[in-house]
Amino acid sequence: MKEMSIQKEIIDDFKVLDGDLEMTLNYLMELGEKLDVFNEKDKKEENIVKGCQSKVWLTYKKSEDKLFFSGDSNTAITKGLLSLLIRIFSGKSCKEILDTKLFFIGDIGLNRFIGTQRSNGLESMENKFRIIALSNK
């Protein structure tokens, strides 16, 4: 149930923007800027998320049975989206990650990132989290 509440939090955070696309994109970029600095050394082939128009890197650390992610992107908006996924998935066990269904994206007015070409970015990011979880199970 915990991941439900994180997604609900995100939806609440975006609510004040009232679906305004420009403000939503700006807010996303701000969120991206707040991500922890990504280690340049980790920008290598095996950490690249395939299928994005922009470049995305994702790594993780395992502590006890929980995974902690860090990531980066060369585009500000994708980095913002990535920061949301990190917020949702970080600190969870592999099983929790695999059990988490994402529903927030349509509720924050970013439907455009699902089901179109652009979305491949989001879907492949999501998949990368799940693949990491699977391989650590």
Binding site: E22, L25, M29, T75, A76, I77, T78
Partner: peptide, 13 residues
Amino acid sequence: FHYYDLGLLLDAK
């Protein structure tokens, strides 16, 4: 300024 960000931000306008 990455072209992808630019394209999305301009679309918002």
